[in-house]
Design a protein around this nucleic acid. Structure first.
Lengths: 260, 260
DNA sequence: GAGATACCTTGATGGAAGTCAAATCTTACC
DNA sequence: GGTAAGATTTGACTTCCATCAAGGTATCTC
């Protein structure tokens, strides 16, 4: 157990490579929901054009993260939500006793940063799994705007509630599924999310390690690795390192729905 | 095992026992947050007296539930949140394949009904574990009021976010704890919640079966039963059916924090 | 209050996933 | 581009919890 924590420390030789979240404050780079290709997957869903423009005024600077960098850490004070514009991130929950677990993976269009709203202080850490970029949405501004735009208010509430439903699904997975069902569910979930973003639903690159997958699924990395091998032997998929090709979606679905 | 259980059981012989939620619409029985003893644990926390009065106008009828009755079922359309005024309830998540799992237990002051907000349709079932009573809070009214009372809006958001944090803790429990740690965590959590409500933190009656506890903790009922016996043998608690007396809180806490 | 039903306890046994270990492959970094 | 660190695979063995089973206790119903 060396450092499982991605230390912000790195040599920093010639030019200063950012080891901390780099804020882009140049006006030209300011995010605009009204022109964002992700708006149909993000908070603005279904908003009227005029309301969208108002939302533009609320969304703050973009933040770039290099692979391994954290957007925020446990203990930091909560101030904003973040919409993923590019890349992949993970949320890690940290218990007092040092135990930690991946609580979720975030693709573009997803919103992160909710943990912390409850206590004004983040209880999780969010880390980029590849070079990523997020839009900052200062929460006070969002609340203020939500008071003026009922549909936005409702979107926000629905978003929070869907997060809860999603967590319930994970609890069901962790509490009642066998290892193979868990991994199949995980892969099908990723598949579906890529599909809805216009990417291939059958061929993609895993941005997380076997250990991170295991952490999310309540399994050990060896178990995850063995399952990938077994699924491949059974013709369900082809795997080569982080590259995955799902070759039999129906069979994967059948694994999930096996026992009631 | 003498039954010293103070059953809430009341005969209810003569009048027809309702098996569906009974709505009390008599005006005199209307709930009033401003005079409710639970307001410091519930949504109104910290609201100004005038705002509390406004909240009174939003809270609708009370609903009485007999043990075993459901407040709502999966598939029903979502319209309101419910504040527990009396009794204990459980939320059960239902998967498409018939699998189900207890997602939470609710004591007085707790708010239930969030599932369904995301999709406008409930994805869970809420059932009374003993005779209970809840206040109905029509969600549209609450949203409307939240737009006018920023502190209430913020309370609502915090409440939703805390629900998410709570779920993260359960995910951590299900994903990384051993059986004994799970049960100890469960008992300590109950203990703490009773304490904050002014009840004994060391002696209480479990309102759920071993199977329901197991469902919540991702364990089988036999395992839960064996653990109770073992904890008793080890002097951590005394158990007789549903009556529990925690006799060594520090030791229970130590079980939880064992490995990092 | 008797019988039926649901709930709880305890034992014996098996299996799924964890642990430990070592070899191979990949990636990151000077 | 070479080397070190990290990630992945696979095997052998162990452990914890599930499963099956049976008897006991509490609770509900008529």
């Amino acid at each position: 157990m060396s450092s499982s924590v991605p230390r912000p420390a790195d040599p920093a030789t010639a030019e200063s490579p950012p080891r901390q979240a780099q804020v882009i404050s140049i006006r030209d780079l300011k995010s605009h929901c009204s022109s964002c290709t992700m708006r149909e997957l993000c908070l603005p869903v279904g908003l009227a054009p005029d309301d969208l423009k108002l939302l533009d005024t609320v969304v703050g600077s973009r933040v770039r993260l290099k692979k391994g960098e954290s957007l925020y850490r446990a203990g930091e004070s909560f101030a904003a939500l973040y919409a993923v514009r590019l890349g992949t991130l993970k949320t890690t929950v940290l218990a007092e006793d040092g135990r930690e677990q991946v609580a979720g993976y975030h693709l573009l269009g997803d919103i992160v940063g909710l943990d912390g709203l409850g206590t004004e202080r983040h209880g999780c850490e969010v880390v980029a799994l590849e070079d990523s970029e997020v839009c900052t949405i200062p929460f006070e501004n969002l609340e203020e705007l939500a008071r003026r735009i009922p549909p936005l208010q409702h979107n926000l509430h629905q978003f929070l509630a869907r997060e809860i439903s999603r967590d319930h699904s994970v609890m069901l997975l962790l509490g009642s599924m066998r290892a193979e069902e868990r991994l199949a569910t995980f892969l099908l979930n990723l598949s579906d999310r890529y599909r809805r973003r216009g990417y291939s639903s059958t061929e993609f690159v895993l941005r997380m390690t076997r250990e991170e997958i295991g952490s999310y699924l309540g399994l050990k990395l060896e178990t995850v690795s063995r399952l990938f091998s077994r699924f491949q032997d059974e013709g369900l998929l082809k795997v080569s390192g982080r590259n995955v090709k799902l070759t039999d979606l129906p069979a994967l679905k059948q694994i999930v729905g096996q026992r009631g």
